[in-house]
């Protein structure tokens, strides 16, 4: 193992790790927004919205995220969408993650006992009041753990933007493998940083999950 080389290039990996983190954070935020809207659509009173929500989930979960990214980044200009690689990465991955989060959020909401909504409605709460006072606070607690799984997958999925040349961890590893012919060392560097990010995130999710549980 070429430790000397690893020490020499590791600052570049560290820098790239910050790009991966930034990508993950922005993607997660966009994913949560899309997931919330998607779940609201799937649970709507209106059949049209339910259909659109189901179509969103089916199409974005039914095709590779890489292709979705390519359509947005390379195909976008043909339909008037001009994005730089980083923007395309965040938007593409965010919409993709949103499709998975839609199912997570919806699953947590429909897992709440029907009697909870009934009890709220018999007190005179409206549909929406029952949802945000009674259903969502309970569903939110159920969501933390599965959303953590979504987040874990999303962090790893940010590697895809290497294919559109965003200089994050995987792209950096690929470039240094190409120039140094040391795949194991470069994998070790990038892999370690990914695992640290994933580990810390996982601990954060576990902490949050403990905090929000009802005593």
């Amino acid at each position: 193992m070429d430790l000397e080389l690893m020490l020499k290039v590791y600052p570049f990996f560290l820098q790239a790790a910050w790009v991966t983190i930034l990508l993950s954070v922005l993607t997660a935020l966009l994913g949560l927004i899309c997931g919330t809207l998607g779940a609201a659509a799937r649970l709507s009173r209106f059949a049209v919205l339910r259909f659109l929500g189901a179509a969103y989930v089916s199409v974005f979960r039914g095709t590779p995220a890489l292709i979705q990214l390519f359509i947005l980044y390379f195909g976008g200009p043909q339909v008037g969408i001009q994005l730089d690689a980083f923007q395309a990465g965040v938007i593409g991955l965010g919409i993709n993650a949103g499709a998975y989060m839609t199912e997570t959020i919806r699953g947590a909401i429909i897992a709440i006992d029907k009697g909870q909504r009934e009890a709220a409605r018999t007190l005179g709460l409206s549909r929406w009041q029952a949802t945000y006072k009674v259903i969502l606070p309970q569903a939110a607690r159920l969501m933390v753990r599965p959303l953590g799984v979504n987040l874990n997958m999303l962090i790893k999925a940010t590697a895809l933007v290497a294919a559109i040349s965003v200089v994050e961890l995987t792209y950096t590893a690929q470039r240094y493998i190409g120039s140094t012919y040391k795949p194991f060392e470069m994998f070790l560097l990038a892999g370690l940083l990914y695992m640290i990010i994933i580990y810390v995130t996982g601990r954060g999710v576990a902490w949050l999950d403990r905090r929000v549980q009802i005593t």
Partner: peptide, 13 residues
């Protein structure tokens, strides 16, 4: 704990 794409690079190269 690591992305598939990174693993593919490792295995291929």
């Amino acid at each position: 704990g690591t992305p598939l794409l990174l693993q593919l690079f490792l295995i291929y190269f």
